[in-house]
Amino acid sequence: MTVVAGQPPAPTIAVTPLRSAAAASRIALGALLLRDLTVLRKHVLEFVLRTLIQPFLLVFVFLYVFPQIGQSVGGGRGSSTFATVLVPGVVGISVMFQGVQSVALQLSQEFGFTREIEDRVQAPCPVWLVAVAKIVAGLIQGLLAALIVFPIASVVHAAGVHAVFNIRWWVVLTLLPLTCVVFSAGGLLLGCVFEPRNIGLMFGFIVLPITFLGGTYYQWTRLAPVKVGGFSWLQILVCINPLVYVNEGLRGAFTNSAHMHFYIVYPVLIGFAVLFLAAGVRAFRRRVLS
C-alpha cells in the first residue's frame, strides 16, 4: 500500500478499548522487553566490554600480576585458595554492576535529560508494570553478564594459580536469577531516588561501599578479627550489604570453600528482593505520577 504524502491513513479510530487491561498489559510488557533487547543487540559489543572490563582487571591484578610480583594476598595463604574465593565474588560484583549500569544509570537519564520515561508510562498498562519491565530487562542483562564473566574470571590466572570449582547447579540456577532480581530492583530504586546530577554521590556513597565491603575479596567469617573492644563491628556492619550474601552464596554455588549457610543466604536475598521491588516501584510511581 502506498500513501500519498499529506494523505492521512484511513480512519479506523476506535472509541472503546480494543483489549482488556490484562491483555493490553501483557502485550505492553512484551513490547517493552522487545525494545530493551533490541537496544541491547545493537550495542552488544559495548555491553560485553563494559561488563568484562572490571572483572577482567580484578582477576588480572589479583590472580595474574600479584602472584608474579610476589605480592601476598589472601592472608598469606596460597594464591589458588584466594582465586577460589575471588572468582565467585567477581561474578557477584559483575551482576551488581549490571543493576547499576543497565537499570539505575539508564533510568536516571530517562527521568532527567531525555524525558523518555514520560512516553513510556503512556503504554497501555499500569505504571508499576513499566517499572517491572525495567527489572526484567535488568535481570536478563545480569544473567548474560554472569554467563560471560565466569569463564573469563576462571582462566585469567598466572601459571600455577588454579581456582578449584565444584558447581552445584541447583544453587547456580536459583541463586543467580535471585541475585539479578535483587540488583535490578536495587537499580530501579537508585535510579528513581538519585537525580542525574547526583550520580557521583550514588557511586561514592552507595556503589563503592557495597563493592569494597561486599565480601568480594574475602569470606565473611574472616572479618571476625576486626574488633573494637572485643566487638566484631565490621562483620556485623556489612550484614546490611546484600552483596555479602550474594558472594557467600555464589561461593557455595561454585566452590567447596567455606560459605554462609544457604538457609541464611536465600531468605535474606528474598527479603532484599521484596524490599527493593516494593520501594523501587513506589519510588517510580512517585516520580512519574503527581
Partner: peptide, 12 residues
C-alpha cells in the same frame, strides 16, 4: 488508567 491509555495519544 490501563484501559484509558489505549484510547489516547500524547505529545508532551
Amino acid at each position: 488508567p490501563a484501559l484509558a491509555k489505549q484510547l489516547i495519544g500524547v505529545v508532551s
